[in-house]
Write a protein that binds this DNA or RNA. Structure first.
Lengths: 304, 304
DNA sequence: CCCAAAATGTTATTAAAATAACGCTTGTGC
DNA sequence: GCACAAGCGTTATTTTAATAACATTTTGGG
C-alpha cells in the first residue's frame, strides 16, 4: 500500500448497517469528508447522479468523462473505503434490487409515458425520431462535400438570421476550434464587404436558415456565388430556393414540431459535422485546441 | 481474426428487430443456433437467468462460474455477434433504443468510411441516449419550478458566455415569442445594471453555462440573488457550484461526447421548456405570436 | 471401434486497467 | 508573500482480462 495514499480504517465496508447498499454509497458520497476538494465534488456529484451507470464504467472511463486523471478516481474510491472500483461494483451488486439498468431503461419508461399521452415524453420521442433520421443525411454525398468544404476552405463565413442566429454563432464558435479563419457575419454594416470583396480565393459561406426565411438570406447566397464564394446551405425542407442558390444544399428533415420548430436537430447536425471534422483532421485539431485553450487562459475569462 | 473462430456475418447487431435490447439478447440466446452444444446451453441458460448481473461480470468470471474456459465464453459471444463482453455490455447499457439505423452498415463514401460511418452512428446514438435521459429532468421538481418561474417572472434576463452564448441567445429569442420582457444580457457595459439595479420586483435570471465555466457566471449569479433576482441555472454535471448560487438548478446529464461537449442536448432541453410554456399559456401565446408575426412583416426582414 | 469434424481446454501473447512513486500545482496558514 | 501541506497529474510498473494459436477431448456416423 502506498504511504501517500492510505486507505483509512473507517468508512467503506466497515459499516454494517445492512440497509440498501446504494443508499449507503450515496450517503458516503454526500458526506463532507468526501466533498472537500474540487475534484472530490466532481466525482461525488457524478456518482450521485450516475450510480446506475457505475457497473458499466471503469475508473478510467469515469476519469475521462470528468476530465481528471484515473489516479484521482482511484484515490477517491480508496478514501471511500473501497479498494478500487471493482470492490464498489461488487458491493453494488450485492445491494442489487434497485437497478435502473436492469431490463427497463429510462427510455423504456419514456416509451410507457408516451403511450399514456404525456406531452413532454411525446416531444422527446419526436426529437429522438428526428435524430434517427439525420443519420440518412450523413450518408448523402452532400455531407461529405460539406465536410470537405469546411476543411478545405481558406476562410469560412457563417451567417444566419433572426432566431437561429444564435445557433449559427455557436457553430462558428465551435468550428473555430477546429480551424482558423472562421467568422460569423451579420452584414450589419450593410455590405458584407469582408465576405464579398473577392480579395481571397477559396472562401466559403456557410448559410443557415429555416422556415420563416430571412429576406437577406437568398440575395446573400446569390451575391456570394457571383463573388466566387462557395455556398453551403443548411436548411429545412421548406426552403423553396435551396439548391438554386447554393453549391451544396443540406436539407435536414423533421426539424419542426407540432408547436413550433425546434433547433435541437440542427444543433445535433452541427455537432456531428464538427465531430466529423475533428476525426478527419485529428492531431491537427488537438494542437489548435491546445493553442486556443492557452489563449483562453490568458484572455478568455474562464474560471479556475 | 482467427480462421477457426469466425465471426459470422449474421446475428448480433445486424438484426434490426427493434425494441428492447435485453429482449433482443434474450431472443438471440434462445435461438437454436446458439444452443447447440452442451456449453452453449450452459451459457445461454446462464445469460437468460442472469442478464441483470452481466454488467458486473467478466468473461472470466462467467467461465469460472460455469466451469468452462474463458475462451468458450469469448467464442460464444462472438457467435452472438458481439466482439467481446464489453460490446454486449455497452449494448445493455444503451438499454432500449432501436438499433435499426445503426445497422444500415457502413456509409458508402470515402476511404475511412467504415470507421467514420460507425463513428457518426455512434455519436447519433449517444445523442439519442442523452435525449432519453433528459426525460428524467422533466419529471424533477426543478423542472416545474423553472417553467413556473419563466412564466411568472416580471422580467426574464438570459445570460451565457463563450461558446454556448449563441445557444442562450436562441433561447432568449424563442422565449420572447411566448412572453414579453425577455432580454439577453452580456454585461459588456461592465455592470449588468439593467438586471441588478433592483428597480423591478420579480425579476428572473436564466443563466446557462457548461464546462469550462465562465469566470463571470458565478459572481453574476451571486450578485443577482443579492439584488433580489431569482436565479435559474441550466448547466451540466461538471458544475461544482451549481446549487449554491442558484434558486433552481437544472443539471443536464450526458451532454458531453467523446470528442467534445455538444450543445444539442441543451438545445433540446430549451425547446422542451418552450413547448411546455406554450402548452401552459395556450392561447395567450398564440395571440402574442400573431402580434409578433405582424411586427415581423413590418420590420423583420422576413421573406415573402 | 475407428475416424473425421466439431467443441473445448491450454498456453502464450496482446490489450487494457489500476496504481505506486515521483514531481508539479494549488491553496492556506502564519 | 512565503513556506508548508494537500491535491493532482504523469510516467512506469503491476495486475488482470481477452484472445489467437495450438493441443486435446468429445461427438456422431459408419
Amino acid at each position: 500500500m502506498n504511504a501517500r495514499d492510505p486507505r483509512p480504517s473507517f468508512g467503506g465496508r466497515e459499516f454494517g448497517e445492512g440497509g440498501d447498499v446504494s443508499k449507503r454509497i450515496l450517503k458516503l458520497v454526500r458526506s463532507d469528508d468526501l466533498r472537500r476538494s474540487k475534484s472530490d465534488r466532481l466525482i461525488a456529484h457524478y456518482i450521485e447522479r450516475n450510480i446506475a451507470e457505475l457497473p458499466f464504467e471503469t475508473a478510467r472511463s469515469i476519469a475521462q468523462r470528468l476530465q481528471v486523471s484515473p489516479m484521482t478516481i482511484g484515490r477517491y474510491l480508496r478514501r471511500m473505503g473501497f479498494d478500487g472500483l471493482d470492490e464498489l461494483k461488487s458491493e453494488l451488486r450485492r445491494g442489487g434490487s434497485n437497478p435502473a439498468w436492469e431490463v427497463k431503461g429510462p427510455v423504456a419508461s419514456l416509451e410507457q409515458d408516451r403511450k399514456e399521452g404525456k406531452l413532454l415524453a411525446g416531444l422527446i420521442q419526436q426529437q429522438i425520431d428526428n435524430l434517427g433520421q439525420i443519420y440518412a443525411i450523413t450518408s448523402a454525398p452532400e455531407w461529405q462535400q460539406t465536410i470537405d468544404a469546411l476543411i478545405g476552405a481558406t476562410e469560412v463565413y457563417v451567417a444566419a438570421y433572426q432566431n437561429v442566429r444564435g445557433i449559427a454563432q455557436y457553430f462558428a464558435s465551435q468550428l473555430s476550434y477546429t480551424r482558423p479563419r472562421v467568422q460569423f457575419v451579420d452584414g450589419l454594416n450593410g455590405t458584407y464587404a469582408e465576405l464579398l470583396d473577392g480579395s481571397v480565393e477559396g472562401r466559403l459561406l456557410f448559410l443557415h436558415d429555416v422556415r420563416r426565411f430571412a429576406a437577406k438570406a437568398r440575395p446573400l447566397a446569390l451575391e456570394a456565388r457571383r463573388a466566387g464564394v462557395k455556398v453551403v446551405l443548411l436548411t429545412d425542407e421548406f426552403c423553396p430556393w435551396g439548391p438554386e442558390v447554393s453549391d451544396i444544399c443540406l436539407i435536414v428533415p423533421g426539424s419542426h414540431g407540432p408547436l413550433w420548430d425546434g433547433a435541437a436537430t440542427m444543433t445535433a447536425v452541427m455537432d456531428l459535422m464538427l465531430s466529423n471534422i475533428i476525426v478527419l483532421k485529428g492531431d491537427e485539431v488537438s494542437e489548435r485546441v491546445d493553442t486556443l485553450t492557452h489563449l483562453q487562459d490568458v484572455f478568455g475569462d474562464f474560471e479556475s
